[in-house]
Amino acid sequence: MTNSKERQRRLHDAYTVPGVRPQSTQRGERAKALEGEQGATAAAVRVPEFAIRAKATRSSNTDTVAGLALCALALLVLYNTRSLERTALMGIGPGTFPSLVAGLLAAIGVVLFVKGVIRPAAAMAFAEGLRPALLVTAGVALFALLLPGLGLVPAVFALVLVATRSSSGISLRLACVIAAILAVATALVFVAGLALPFRLLPLWI
């Protein structure tokens, strides 16, 4: 237990400047961050991402969120496997193992949640890194959706274009250039070079 507190303290120290009253600055920045997220002119207020660091609370810390997420997953599994046989004549049915695992998972979820409420663990910094997470995974998903219909070149182009939106250092024009270069390069290396069975362009071209 002392360990998690110690870690929390270290984390806290790492993000606060010595000499400045840590609590008040943190709260101030957090308020600013919230304003930035909720305000109508969201683009006007740009808060550096590391400033959006919420304080650990009883209701929202890594343990409670993890506990809730695990319980939700367990319930989903139990609901989805409810029609499967749990017992069979010889040994166990197809539903036994999933419900056993889901039950254990739910139990752990509850324990984690209660633990988090009693002794809040490290703060949940959900907003930090959310933008790259969403854009990068969206780019990959787009690649998967476009590849069968449109072929490799448009899929790579779309992937790179969307994923590069997550870093501020790349303008839209530069992103297009990088996307085009990578699309051509992958076509040359993987299709012309390694002869992997990709369709390059949509059929109608």
Binding site: T62, V65, A66, A69, A121, A122, M124, A125, F126, G129, A133, L134, V136, T137, A138, V140, A141, F143, A144, L145, L147, P148, P197
Partner: peptide, 24 residues
């Protein structure tokens, strides 16, 4: 040769990020 696999990868990219957030 499965686009569904790439989709699964995208989903687990996000899951992996979320797991880091909740320290698993």
């Amino acid at each position: 040769n499965s686009a569904a696999d790439v989709l699964i990868m995208a989903v687990f990219g996000f899951v992996g990020w979320f797991m880091k957030k909740i320290e698993i």
